[in-house]
Design a protein around this nucleic acid. Sequence first.
DNA 1: CGCGGGTTTGATGATGCTCAAGCCCGGTGG
DNA 2: CCACCGGGCTTGAGCATCATCAAACCCGCG
Lengths: 193, 193
Amino acid sequence: MYQNLFTYIHNYIQSSLTIEEKEMIKSAFQLKKLRRKQFFLQEGEIARYTAFISKGAMRQYISDEKGGERIVNLFIENYWATERESFTTLNPSRYNIDVWEDAELLIITRESFMALAEKVPALIEMTRLMDDRNAIANQRRLTSTISYPAEKRYEDFVNNHPRFIERFPQHFIASFLGITKETLSRVKRQSIK
Amino acid sequence: MYQNLFTYIHNYIQSSLTIEEKEMIKSAFQLKKLRRKQFFLQEGEIARYTAFISKGAMRQYISDEKGGERIVNLFIENYWATERESFTTLNPSRYNIDVWEDAELLIITRESFMALAEKVPALIEMTRLMDDRNAIANQRRLTSTISYPAEKRYEDFVNNHPRFIERFPQHFIASFLGITKETLSRVKRQSIK
DNA sequence: CGCGGGTTTGATGATGCTCAAGCCCGGTGG
DNA sequence: CCACCGGGCTTGAGCATCATCAAACCCGCG
């Protein structure tokens, strides 16, 4: 259950966690199981928790005036899922996060995490590195989105996130890329030839 | 010269910097003046420095195969400018950063900044908050880019970055928004009526 | 005056969206 | 075991948005 989280942390920092640290981590997080289609966070709520996904798959989306949905993030196991704006500012979230494949989450509030990080310094370093990588990934995604047409964006996506292709339906990917499912369908057909 | 940086830091953390801290900061950063059109960072180079802009305006862009340029970031005074991917990974940068309005920069290497932050803890907190805000801003920009047509993106931009409109030419803004200057020109004409 | 950016305008075409229909396939219930 | 259903995927026709290319315009400046 917690093993994924421990190896995740270990991938970020070189040193190993002590037994005591592992215990503190275990008691600070809280296990939550969610089934397909259940919400982890709904528009209007405050994102009190961040979740480490130890199993399953989720999506983050925003809904527009006309009932449409735009997917802005996809998550699978070993990802952290939260709505960062709401989580840090405590304003109501404009986004929803729901479950695609039955999930096991390790959740923690911002305050608990801060307190925990005081006692387990590795987590501070981990957060810093995660922020670095996150900023880099976002910059890349943004560059790609404003620079390239649908076909190239899809190519890039396939190369960078092969596992997502297997786990999520096509129309999720399309929405994530900022195109319609029809366009994605046609783009794929073209690129085969 | 350093005053902008001090007030910037002060805006992020509540407490004031001590005289000693200010001295340490002054000696850790290095002043660099750059004229319009000069490069702060060129494609292929490693981004050894991050720059606090105490005066002036700059742009970050990437160039495509056909000689075109896509602007991915715009900076004015009281912004930090660097290419984060290269700065943190030490890989050659795919982006350029050059100067639009004559600029005064306070620059520092990653190592020096880390060392400085050891001695001035306020900087660690500041970095954390900057990362938070940055992540939030990027998420918003991404959502807007994949969700809305040119006209709405421009509206949002005008609301969120009024000062940029005054400082940069239209075709910079267009490129930043991921549209052509012609389209932006027409969008503006429409929205007046 | 003429030059160099920056901006606008127009004509044309590509790209991607909308709406609507059909297909495919796995799951459910009779 | 088959009929049906729902969700996802594909296909097509028509349309909106936006890019491209080319020309003109505007204006500050040497």
